[in-house]
Design a protein around this nucleic acid. Sequence first.
DNA 1: TTTCGATATGTTTTGTAATGAATAGCGATT
DNA 2: AATCGCTATTCATTACAAAACATATCGAAA
Lengths: 115, 115
Amino acid sequence: MTNNKIINVKFRIWFFAGEEKLLGIGRVELLERINTTGSIAKAAKEMKMSYRQAWQMVNEMNQRSAFPFVVKHLGGKSGGGAIVTEAGLKTIKAFNELQEKIEFYIKQEASKIKL
Amino acid sequence: MTNNKIINVKFRIWFFAGEEKLLGIGRVELLERINTTGSIAKAAKEMKMSYRQAWQMVNEMNQRSAFPFVVKHLGGKSGGGAIVTEAGLKTIKAFNELQEKIEFYIKQEASKIKL
DNA sequence: TTTCGATATGTTTTGTAATGAATAGCGATT
DNA sequence: AATCGCTATTCATTACAAAACATATCGAAA
């Protein structure tokens, strides 16, 4: 009565500021795209989400974090844009590094499982 | 410009059978309660979910796993019930053990993060 | 001072997931 | 063969989240 089917383990992590959810993989990707495109609107379009939703995510992160992750710069011929702050960049870097470590760790441990 | 706010890391894991989600913490708890109460109906009531939903979860797990996690036993004065199989017990044990290990690992790694 | 695209925000619509109610079938025990 | 409550399943309803739409505001650059 031994189950020989391979069990695949998946996981997700989230960063919390106290008890408030700060970000997960989705918001990290959003920040990364804001960083490369220079605007919330373009990042949202790339991810096929509404600007409204993207903006709400950014706003929530900014309010919950001790330092904002994204700041706007309005005006100019291009109409303006948004840039990811140093605090934002550090956070997504820490998130990605931790996630990679955990992925590696889980792969090790999961391979030991015998059902 | 250093963020001294403490970042709290939370996580969840899931077991997959191939690409199909098998179970997460919620279904593990459901299985544990089925195991102690001897019925899906009682387990559902304890968790304040509808019998319908609980049954659907059990059914999905049974179909996706190589071996069913729960088997029914109808009839008797008590009307019948359900029991968790050996395969089910082994799976929830493996899940809980892996989860504990990861929790410990993340605590270690998260404490190193400086933002 | 006009223009531009981006930010910022409210309102409405839609889609889908969760819930609730209702009921048929089961079968060991008595 | 009557009983019990638990499994199994359908259908209607509700609730909530996501999407769609609409629009006001901003301000550097031309």
